[in-house]
Design a protein around this nucleic acid. Structure first.
Length: 551
RNA sequence: GGGCCCAUCGUCUAGCCUGGUCCAGGACACCUCCCUUUCAAGGAGGACACAUGGGUUCGAAUCCCAUUGGGCUCACCA
């Protein structure tokens, strides 16, 4: 390893989760770009030292999100060609033996000590401090006053104990490449726990040991960790480790300034339910027992399937929070990366659109912004639109089809290849996401004899004017039934003369009634495309059925 | 409340380090108009910011101080 001693190593070190949050995604992206752009190594390490949270099977489901974004790791858990490395294991729960050695070292040198206060005792001390509006600092005088014999005795009888680090009483300077230096006054950092009663290290301890052993040179993480750095620095000094270079990234918020949280989805649902004064779930959405439990406890979260069905029943849109939410909504991974980069970093000048390769070769800490960013979905949407528009048609078709197979299999099974292709042709310039086509063209997958017509649209476009839309439809039915070339051009040629003679050349007065008859609503691709996509038989059936229904 | 950090259009940001070329540039959103067969998309315009107050200086968005505002953090969670 000495030969790469000056090699840059960054790491992304999340706790286990099935989903990658956009904030985490940006941290990962920056760590990745920083290391990769400098010929360094990007390490993925799983911080699973909380036994309460790490038990589920899908614990690192988020790796699929990383790969979808194009973020691969050199060292870490092995998954689809990524990971491996000889500085593992990369799950902290599997490194307990490693940590033991360093705990012993600190205990032996008197830099750490056993403490026996219970969680309850500490909580009441904390409450007391809070009542006086004073910050609580664990001084450890009582614990440190314990004789070695007493400690041995307590441990021998199995009295629950944590190990605390005895923080030196001197100011700590945090050097940060992004924020500059900050001095944390002496006494601010107290004697924090480094080993929990269950024998697991706390985050602070595991991070410090692993960063050292894994050769991490640059620690890039969210700004919420800034104060933690003081703890990490005193530990590094005590253990004789080198100090990595720190860079604390600005936070990403919701547009309203609140923290982006996975609970935001539940928040939207709860609000909608409260507004409607509902006490039981809409039919076929969520199990009523589950529902009432969820309503009662604001801290519980609905799983994605339940939340989505509830959302669609309520007609509300769930906010995208996780990377997978954005994938589901039809965003392109390269757009997500581009946009995420712009939240907290910029290449300077007027340049905004760039790819991962560019980020890799240009990302630097000096240009990271210090201020928190609010995540602007409408700008993201615009970026996605631009990327979609710039795409060659074949690529667009392939990507939409792929998206459809994953998220709208039913739709895909109900359209022919030709229909799908025409739909893409008619949709690319107006698609903001890969999902738009499926959301706005539901009329295609509805059977001809069950299509329903929007009452407002019917009133406005089938009646009202003279001649009425219905009369136009009757005439068009005849014309179209004789149309031999059912292509966009052929249809246009067939209908245009009628528009000229019967509607004063105003296509709108013909197109809208047609659209209503064909789609049930006033929104669809351009009318000749719509006819072409539906096909002759279907179109005529729909027109005739519509006319008959209005008789 | 203590500690730390931050402060340019509604939003993301450029400019700040190395004061003058900035009556502050770009993008998204917004407004107006045009195009038009719906929804979009597209085209052309427009409005919109250096938090406040003091300094320093011939000159400050840029340097200093204070105020105000915002954020993070104070766990046997990470």
């Amino acid at each position: 390893m000495s030969s790469n001693s000056n090699k840059i190593v960054t790491r992304f070190a999340p706790s286990p989760s099935g989903n990658l949050h956009v904030g985490g995604a940006r941290t990962a992206l920056f760590c990745w770009a920083f290391a990769k752009g400098r010929g360094g190594t990007f390490v993925l390490r799983i911080e699973d030292t909380d036994q309460k949270r790490s038990s589920d099977a899908a614990s690192i489901g988020f790796v699929k999100d990383l790969l979808w974004l194009g973020i691969d790791w050199d060292e870490g858990p092995v998954f689809e060609g990524c990971g491996g490395g000889d500085r593992g294991p990369y799950f902290q729960a599997q490194r307990l033996d490693t940590y033991r050695k360093y705990f012993d070292l600190l205990i032996a040198s008197g830099k750490a000590y056993y403490a026996f206060e219970t969680t309850e005792e500490l909580a009441s001390l904390r409450d007391a401090a809070k009542a006086e509006n004073k910050p609580f600092r664990y001084t450890g005088q009582a614990a440190r006053a314990l004789s070695a014999e007493k400690v041995a005795e307590f441990l021998a009888v199995g009295k629950p104990a944590v190990i605390r680090f005895h923080t030196p009483q001197s100011p700590i300077t945090i050097c940060d490449e992004i924020l500059g230096d900050a001095i944390i006054p002496a006494g601010e950092t107290d004697d924090f726990v480094i080993r929990k009663a269950d024998g697991f290290p706390t985050y602070h301890f595991a991070v410090v040991v692993d960063d050292e052993l894994m050769g991490v040179t640059h620690v890039l993480r969210a700004q919420e960790h800034f104060n933690n750095s003081a703890k990490h620095i005193v530990l590094q000094d005590a253990l004789g480790f080198r100090r990595p270079i720190y860079g604390h990234l600005p936070l990403i918020f919701n547009p309203d300034g609140s923290k982006m949280s996975k609970r935001d989805k539940d928040k939207v649902l709860r609000k909608a339910i409260a507004e409607r004064g509902m006490t039981s779930p809409p039919a076929n959405t969520v199990d009523p027992v589950l529902f009432s439990a969820w309503i009662k406890d604001k801290n519980t979260q609905l799983d994605l399937a339940c939340a989505s069905s509830l959302a669609s029943a309520l007609g509300v849109i769930l906010p995208e929070i996780n990377v997978d939410d954005f994938r589901r909504s039809g965003y392109l991974p390269e757009v997500i990366c581009n946009f995420l980069s712009l939240n907290g970093w910029s290449p300077g000048g007027d340049l905004e659109k760039f790819d991962r390769e560019f980020l890799k070769s240009h990302f630097d800490l000096a240009r990271v912004v210090k201020t928190p960013a609010k995540f602007d979905r409408s700008k993201l949407l615009a970026f996605n639109l631009h990327a979609l528009q710039a795409m060659p048609r074949e690529e667009f078709v392939a990507k939409v089809a792929d998206h459809g197979r994953t998220f709208h299999p039913e739709f895909m099974s109900r359209v022919t290849d030709a229909q799908f292709r025409s739909l893409c042709d008619a949709s690319q310039e107006r698609s903001k996401t890969l999902d738009d086509l499926f959301r706005t063209n539901g009329f295609i997958t509805v059977a001809d004899d069950v299509l329903e017509w929007d009452t407002k649209a019917v009133k406005k476009f089938l009646h009202g004017a003279t001649p009425s839309g219905c009369e136009h439809l009757k005439a068009l039915s005849k014309i179209l039934s004789q149309c031999g070339d059912w292509s966009v051009q052929g249809l246009e040629a067939a209908i245009k003369p009628y528009v000229e003679s019967e509607a004063g050349g105003n296509l709108g007065s013909i197109a809208q009634p047609l659209r209503v008859a064909l789609c049930g609503s006033t929104v669809s691709p351009p009318i000749f495309d719509t006819l072409a996509i539906l096909g002759k038989a279907s179109s005529l059936k729909r027109i005739d059925r519509c006319v008959a229904s209005q008789a």
